[in-house]
Design a protein around this nucleic acid. Structure first.
Lengths: 150, 150
DNA sequence: TTGTAATATATGTAAATACATATTTCGGAT
DNA sequence: ATCCGAAATATGTATTTACATATATTACAA
């Protein structure tokens, strides 16, 4: 369905620029809603899921809170409290970094890895809801989004 | 800058699909951050701003809470409390609908209209930060985003 | 060494979000 | 008329977000 129909907008957008702005936000909410739906049974928030994925990408290589923030999509979030939550669930370990008592080393635990595998398996469902673009189109979409941020 | 660099991702994405998912979310956060920056001086949240724009689009035609939800980007939000906030600031009026005492008519006030004009003038600044795509490219981006949601 | 700024993280908090649930009113069916 | 389910909005509340600020540690200059 076209964006205009989805948000019941009667008059057309002033420009493609303006529509694109709204379109990105609307599509993001659309994705967010789906992700939430798939994550809900696992009792984990999207932000926590993303942090866990970052840690998983590091394999057994520890990473500091600051490095997590660097890699996060939403830089504003409170990484240390997100790590708290994951720690409470036993999905990550956290210990003082040797040689720098300010920083701390965060690593995903085996429990975290296996949990993430389960979630990832389930969340593949989104892919089925989003298979309308060809590989070439996805590529073009990525090019445009990269370019929009200059 | 490429997405991979922005989020310091060392290994490449598994697919263009997966990158697109992350790219939409990242770009949305990027826009969100900018919008917040421009809205901050006006002491209004993005959601409130969007509701005000919906009401403005109606001109003097009143609209119910349910119709606002229909037109919102984020359907999950609490439209009635957003309207509360705008009402408290004097930007909207709200009265019981004639013929249906459940529903209520919400309209933007002259104060709301003039406030929105000020905000819109300021928020044009984002446009300057986002002028890297041509009209044709914005059009193509819109086509792809519309299509991704089937 | 001592003071000062920078770094890394943690904490406090007001507001917003995501839901669940309640309240009021309306539209039929019986 | 009255009962019942649906509709429209309001309210409750746990969690998350967006910041500001605090704490602790380090680096470095004088």
């Amino acid at each position: 369905m076209s964006l205009e129909q989805e948000i019941k907008q009667t008059r057309p957008f002033k420009s493609n620029y303006e529509k694109a702005l709204v379109n990105i936000m609307f599509t993001n909410n659309w994705i967010h809603f789906k992700q939430n739906k798939y994550l809900k049974p696992f009792d984990i928030s999207i932000q926590q899921y993303n942090v866990l994925r970052i840690l998983n990408g590091q394999k057994d290589q520890p990473i500091t809170i600051n490095e997590i923030i660097d890699r996060m999509l939403d830089k504003m979030s409170n990484a240390s409290r997100l790590v708290d939550k994951l720690y409470a669930k036993g999905y990550v370990s956290r210990e003082q970094k040797v040689g720098n008592r300010r920083a701390c080393d965060v690593t995903i635990t085996p429990k975290g890895i296996s949990f993430l595998e389960d979630v990832t398996k389930s969340i593949k469902g989104i892919e089925k809801d989003m298979n309308s673009l060809s590989e070439v189109e996805f590529d073009e979409l990525n090019r445009l989004l990269d370019k929009i941020r200059k």
